[in-house]
Computed example of a mutant assay.
Amino acid sequence: MRHSTLLALASAASLSTASPLESRAVAKFPAGTTWDIVLKVVLPLADLQKTKVQALDIDLFDNTEGGKTTIKELAKTKQVICYFSAGSREDWRDDANQFVPADYGKALDGWEGENWLDVKSANVRKIMKARIEFAAKSGCTAVDPDNTDGFSEGQDGFGYPKEVYADYVNYLAGIAKTNNLAIGLKNSLDIIPLVLPNIQFAVNEQCHEFENECALYKPVTAAGLAVFQIEYGGNNCTEPAGVNLSEVIKGADQQLDKLGGQCP
């Protein structure tokens, strides 16, 4: 995660009673799909509806809290990608007490209140299954599970190799497919070859800034899938050969609280 979300999520009771949405085919996100992302605020439905992009990435729980109909209404005209953290325990979330101490490890560097999760834990997987089911019930067409790169430099504190995280992403993808939801890979570039058959898009943050990561998305573009890219600050809208980026330029403060910024 290269940004944080400081908003409350729907009640644990709602998560536990969620059921799959059975009547919808898994959404497709072809390369070049236009998109936007807003996580830090809940914008009026009318503002979201009038944007000209094909897909919107918004916080799952904040946009469903209190019986809001934002997601279901928005999904009538757009693909709605619902964000949640799949690899960290956020202590402000309503279901935070469902994790036992053994489920989480080191703190995420720079992100207060977050700890890396043990992605091999059966309990962690149960909680994430409930979240994905809740996304389906809420009307999302896809999910954006964050923080699936704990293997990078051993930052999770568990010392798991990338293959364990690939297995976790593929597990989440299986749950998503059962619930007729598309799923994306957030960052986690090293496991692209291990999960590519099971994802429908990718989401990257700052690929221009981090050692030219953009070129590593060639297999995703070759598979005909969208690569949704966020660049914080600057104005770099270039694309490496063989990569099709659906790019938005957002503020350097990483607030993700405004619409717009699409590269031409």
Rank of each mutant, 00 (worst) to 15 (best):
I58D: 08
D59H: 07
L60A: 07
F61R: 02
F61A: 11
D62C: 08
N63R: 11
N63L: 06
N63M: 11
T64N: 09
T64A: 14
G66V: 00
G66S: 01
G67S: 02
G67H: 05
K68Q: 12
T69L: 00
T69P: 01
T69K: 14
I71T: 11
I71H: 13
K72E: 09
E73Y: 00
L74R: 00
A75M: 04
A75N: 11
K76D: 11
K76L: 12
K76I: 09
T77W: 06
T77S: 15
T77E: 15
V80T: 07
V80M: 00
I81E: 04
C82T: 10
Y83N: 01
Y83V: 05
Y83H: 04
F84S: 08
G87Y: 08
G87Q: 13
G87M: 12
G87H: 12
R89E: 02
R89H: 06
R89P: 04
E90F: 05
D91N: 14
D91W: 01
D91S: 13
W92Y: 05
R93T: 02
R93W: 02
D94W: 00
A96R: 15
A96Y: 03
A96K: 15
A96C: 05
A96E: 07
A96H: 05
N97C: 04
N97V: 14
Q98I: 04
Q98A: 15
Q98E: 15
F99G: 07
V100S: 14
P101A: 01
P101S: 07
D103A: 06
D103S: 07
Y104R: 04
G105V: 09
K106W: 03
K106G: 01
A107N: 07
L108K: 02
D109V: 05
D109E: 14
G110L: 12
E114F: 01
E114M: 04
E114V: 01
N115R: 13
W116A: 02
W116Y: 14
L117V: 13
L117D: 11
D118N: 15
V119W: 04
V119K: 03
N123A: 05
N123R: 15
N123I: 07
V124H: 06
V124G: 08
V124W: 06
V124D: 10
R125I: 01
R125P: 05
K126L: 07
K126Q: 12
K126W: 00
K126A: 12
K126I: 00
I127V: 10
M128P: 15
K129H: 03
K129M: 00
K129I: 00
K129S: 10
A130H: 06
A130Y: 03
I132V: 13
I132G: 01
E133G: 03
F134C: 10
F134P: 11
F134V: 08
A135I: 09
A135N: 13
A136G: 15
K137V: 13
G139P: 09
C140Q: 12
C140V: 12
V143W: 11
V143M: 10
D144P: 00
P145Q: 14
D146G: 08
D146L: 13
N147Y: 10
N147I: 11
D149H: 06
D149A: 06
D149N: 13
G150I: 07
G150L: 03
G150N: 06
S152A: 11
S152Y: 12
S152L: 14
S152I: 11
E153T: 05
E153L: 04
D156L: 08
G157A: 08
F158L: 02
F158D: 03
